[in-house]
């Protein structure tokens, strides 16, 4: 087996809030091979974005802190790296694409300046070369008339075009790992199709690995090889995309898959639901965090010390009862 490009073990991230310490990410572990695609799926507040920010070293300071765990990137622990080291890695080795392209771009700088800035920081190209690199990258992400766009500002572009610019900025230094945090959630479905198509073709061309963070199981099924399902800060199930969609073992994963309306459904039939809602991170149960919504709940589910069980070598589930389901 190849050595993983990124290996996260026992990542625990906490936030200091007015109501006390909140553990947004609790013991998250996963491996990502070079060139591989891992999806992290979960609902709001499950900790999927905080996981990404922890890897990038972009947690809001001083409130957010990595409490424990390791983030090994090519053998180096990013959780222990200092700011200068992280700045060299970010944008060059690991890049991130955010959900909202309007807030990810600087509204008072031209597109060209925002692209060449990245090149200037990470390479020693001359200003002329930087501009050529930037124009070539805009062309690659499918922006018409790239020379003209270089001189324009973010507000002059449509949402889809802005997201292409954000992708161009993220990929201009040809990183080995791209973290895409809900990259298409703010976009229309036909534009989403364009952007997903673009991301996967760029991924192939550059041979980069990707972490796709999304709440959309359709996007996961289409783009990812490995899937991590998160619930209330923990990984509840992890496996290949086929394990998760064909043989889901955790009641939450099963419920999630059943509750989404599908195009093949008969209209106007009641949907399967997961009753109740996600527990507050301020007040988490000691046992299984999904227990209060789970139809298979047993007395032992409320005991502390729930462990992650292996279904197969590559498929793990955090549930006591999965064998009986």
């Amino acid at each position: 087996m190849t050595k993983p490009l990124l290996s996260v073990t026992g990542l625990t991230t906490e936030f200091q809030t007015d109501e006390g310490l909140v553990r947004a990410v609790d013991g998250v572990s996963f491996d990502l091979p070079p060139g591989g695609t891992l999806g992290i799926v979960g609902e709001s507040g499950c900790g999927k974005s905080v996981t990404a920010l922890s890897i990038m070293g972009l947690l809001p300071r001083p409130n957010g802190n990595i409490r424990s765990g390791k983030i090994h990137y090519q053998g180096e622990d990013l959780a222990a790296a200092d700011t200068t080291r992280l700045q060299r890695i970010r944008g060059n080795e690991i890049s991130m694409v955010f959900q909202e392209p309007m807030t990810a771009l600087n509204p008072v700088h031209t597109i060209g300046r925002q692209l060449t800035e990245v090149v200037a920081i990470h390479t020693n190209q001359s200003p002329d070369e930087q501009i050529r690199t930037a124009v070539a990258m805009l062309q690659r992400v499918g922006i018409p008339a790239p020379e003209l766009r270089m001189t324009e500002y973010p507000h002059q572009l449509s949402g889809g075009m802005r997201q292409r610019v954000v992708i161009a900025i993220a990929l201009i230094c040809e990183p080995r790992l791209l973290i895409a945090d809900e990259p298409t959630t703010a976009l229309d479905v036909t534009i989403q199709a364009q952007i997903l198509d673009l991301i996967s073709s760029l991924q192939k061309d550059f041979g980069m690995a990707m972490i796709m963070i999304t709440h959309d199981l359709g996007v996961i099924a289409e783009t990812c090889e490995q899937v991590v399902v998160m619930y209330a800060g923990q990984v509840v199930e992890q496996g290949s995309v086929f394990d998760i969609f064909d043989r889901p073992k955790h009641p939450y994963t099963q419920g999630l898959l059943r509750s989404i309306p599908k195009l093949t459904d008969i209209p106007k039939q009641p949907l399967d639901i997961i009753p109740g809602m996600v527990p507050s991170l301020h007040d988490l149960p000691v046992g299984c965090r999904f227990a209060n919504r789970c139809q298979h709940r047993a007395a032992e589910c409320d005991d502390a010390g729930l462990i992650v069980d292996a279904v197969t070598e590559a498929h793990t589930v955090r549930c006591l009862k999965w064998r009986q389901l």
């Binding site: 479905v189 199709a193 997903l196 959309d216 099924a221 995309v241 086929f242 989404i260 599908k262």
Partner: peptide, 25 residues
């Protein structure tokens, strides 16, 4: 037709035959 083909299907066995529209609205 393109709107329907653009929807990501939550099934990893499904291979999308997508009609990609050019440009924006």
């Amino acid at each position: 037709q393109s709107l329907i083909s653009a929807i990501p299907i939550p099934d990893p066995h499904h291979t999308a035959t997508r009609i990609l529209l050019k440009g924006d609205v």
